[in-house]
Design a protein around this nucleic acid. Structure first.
Lengths: 202, 202
DNA sequence: TGGTTAAATATGACCAGTCGTTTTAATAAA
DNA sequence: TTTATTAAAACGACTGGTCATATTTAACCA
């Protein structure tokens, strides 16, 4: 294996491990040693891949959000005539995975926004970008649903996307401490199934 | 000063300091030494007041929520004929304080739910109780508003209270990383000003 | 092509400092 | 004096980060 490929592989392993450990144990609750042990990379090598723990955290945040963008994009592309249904099915998948994980972890973005969102400038910027990417995609999906007549048009799609993201985050926190998917299911029902629907039947 | 009184005073100082430091820096991001220095209590004395850091965290959570309960209760009692208005004014005060603090900290409950909500059983239980107390009070306020005709009655007050709490938490996280009160203002507008309102004008 | 060297990368011992907690000694109350 | 409480020192483990050394790669000239 060429050297640069191994470096990339190591880097990727660190990021993947970082995602799962930072999500479950938090930023300050996770030591570098713990992550490095898990992927069998020596302590001294860490700083060949990342400038600092803070830099690593910022990169982990970016790395985290990619799969979600892909997942939601796929749903939106697959169901061309029913964007709202695509969004609903996407969130259903998230709920299922949350239940599979016994409500542990939740969302890395939400957890880190709370923990270091206003103490680490690097991570703050990374969180901003990640959340905005996600919100923008959701917004485009809701706009599509508006055109299709399944979502009310008297409110801007941007505002609804923000509301959906925020409520989802809050519901995830509740789900975490209640060990129940009730809050996140309620979130989807209240917003996608009620608030976002057009007032008048067509 | 009698001994027991001083002990209570020390205990209270530790809790107050704990609230502000845990809110700003998180649980694992705050050392006991830091808290003890701030209130001039020797390190060795800490375990006379609390069994462990985790126990301290759980007590801090309980201590945190009391003022909010009082504040909201006061608003609800003062404006007897307009419960919805009381809730709105209460949240307006929260927004104002958030702005005063430059969007730092946010909500201790939200931050700790994300950071240690599923790793510390003691704190998890304390978080559950604190959030439930708050949610229940909000629910009673919304139920009152329903009786007064200012809030829709086709949805249970309990569900709306949960939705409000969750959206507020998520909006606080967003406000924190965007350094803007936009998200929390939007939260109040969307829910209290729109979603919770009766469908038909009277 | 083969051999040499310089640059790039990987490594683990080690740093000073801090963590939460425990033990022990001093102090105050009874 | 006896008993209970407080405080100080010390504990081992661990923190993020550094650095000299070892190893590998690539560039060069013969």
């Amino acid at each position: 294996m060429p050297r640069s490929a191994k470096k990339e592989s190591n880097r990727d392993n660190l990021l993947n491990q970082g995602v799962s450990m930072l999500m479950r144990q938090g930023y300050h609750g996770t030591g570098l040693q713990e992550i490095l042990d898990a992927v069998h990379i020596p302590k001294g090598s860490f700083y060949n891949y990342f400038e600092s723990k803070e830099d690593f955290g910022a990169k982990v945040i970016q790395h985290y959000v990619d799969p979600f963008i892909i997942q939601l994009t796929t749903h939106l592309q697959q169901s061309g005539t029913d964007a709202l249904g695509a969004i609903q099915r996407y969130f259903d998948e998230l709920v299922a995975e949350l239940e599979k994980n016994d409500f542990k972890g939740g969302c890395l973005l939400g957890n880190l926004m709370g923990e270091i969102g206003d103490t680490s400038p690097l991570c703050q910027q990374s969180l901003q970008m990640a959340v905005n990417r996600y919100r923008d995609l959701l917004q485009s999906g809701l706009a599509k649903a508006q055109q299709q007549g399944t979502v009310r048009t008297d409110k801007p799609a941007a505002g609804m996307a923000d509301l959906l993201v925020n409520t989802w985050q809050g519901a995830l926190l509740r789900a975490k401490i209640e060990k129940s998917s009730g809050p996140v299911r309620q979130c989807c029902q209240d917003l996608l199934g009620d608030f976002f629907r057009p007032h008048q039947a067509p």
